[in-house]
């Protein structure tokens, strides 16, 4: 299972949109950082824009640019989101809890389902192909990526894989009881075009795997690398979130200091990997251990 990344676009708290190499503008986040938003009107029709929440705007714009940069129309779309369209979810909760009359405003409900993101992309692109939405807590991006790689393996020629999540103020109330993290909740969307090997000038995703009852990260990584016939000495860069063993990789970078906290941020790490100046015959490993016990591993060449 491997595929070439031919285009990758991120919108989030970094100034990453439209940048050739996102490492150049990378800054650790302050406590008060905000989404660096492009002018959405350029990418989204006014009729859609007026209803769309931030996560929809970010995701749709990133997906649209990916399609613009990809000659082939996508023949599959796979999106990962851990908490979905939270803003509209909260808005609809407020709508029915405070309602006094018989009628309820439907727009927030319609846009509260997780697959609003992938559905809106299909509509904007006029795309009738396979359209999937995965949600698996901190491994939401990885499960969407695994589906994307599967699509390539099955013979699809141009697959859009993406991840998007949005922060609402309410989430901070969940710390530290339900969620433990040193990072503030943030929003982010990263979309990438996958194509079969041989089509790309950028990087390739070699493999991705998820582990749900991980007790030994070192062993899981060793097995994963062995399955891909990659020697751990050839890992030049490790992009990680959460705790990982210190023994792997020449260089280790914690990507959450750049993304802040959202549970599909491994997609942004994928963008960092894609733009990284990697030496020949070397590899990048993304180790997503945002949540204890749950481990996502992605190997980039």
């Amino acid at each position: 299972m491997s595929a070439v990344i031919t285009s990758i676009v991120s919108i989030g708290h970094q100034d990453s949109f439209g940048k050739e190499n996102i490492w150049e503008t990378l800054q650790p986040l302050g406590t008060q950082s905000e989404v660096v938003a492009p002018d959405y009107k350029t990418y989204i029709s006014p009729a859609s824009l007026r209803r769309f929440s931030p996560v929809l705007r970010m995701a749709l714009t990133a997906a649209q640019v990916c399609q613009n940069e990809t000659v082939l129309p996508f023949d599959a779309i796979s999106v990962g989101t851990s908490l979905g369209c939270l803003k509209d979810t909260e808005r609809f909760l407020q709508t029915f809890i405070t309602a006094t009359g018989d009628t309820l405003s439907p727009t927030a409900f319609i846009q509260s389902t997780h697959n609003t993101i992938a559905g809106a992309i299909s509509m904007a692109l006029g795309n009738h192909s396979y359209n999937m939405t995965h949600t698996q807590n901190s491994l939401s991006f990885e499960t969407a990526l695994i589906d994307g790689l599967l699509c390539i393996q099955e013979g699809k020629k141009s697959v859009l894989v993406g991840a998007a999540d949005e922060a609402i103020e309410f989430l901070e109330l969940l710390k530290p009881q339900v969620i433990q993290s040193a990072f503030p909740f943030t929003s982010g969307a990263t979309f990438l075009s996958l194509q079969p090997e041989g089509n790309g000038t950028k990087k390739a995703v070699m493999d991705c795997s998820v582990h749900f009852n991980n007790t030994n990260t070192e062993e899981a990584i060793a097995t994963f690398l062995k399955n891909n016939q990659v020697d751990s000495d050839t890992i030049e860069l490790v992009l990680f979130a959460g705790e990982i063993p210190r023994t792997i990789g020449a260089k280790q970078v914690n990507y959450e200091q750049y993304t802040g906290l959202y549970y599909s941020s491994a997609a942004f790490a994928c963008h960092l990997a894609t733009d990284y100046a990697l030496s020949k015959e070397k590899y990048i490993l993304i180790v997503n251990h945002q949540v204890n016990g749950k481990l996502g591993l992605t190997l980039i060449r």
């Binding site: 979905g84 389902t113 997780h114 999937m132 939405t133 995965h134 949600t135 698996q136 749900f212």
Partner: peptide
């Protein structure tokens, strides 16, 4: 304890 995946469409 193997692969777990949730689809939400």
């Amino acid at each position: 304890d193997g692969f777990v995946n949730t689809i939400s469409t």
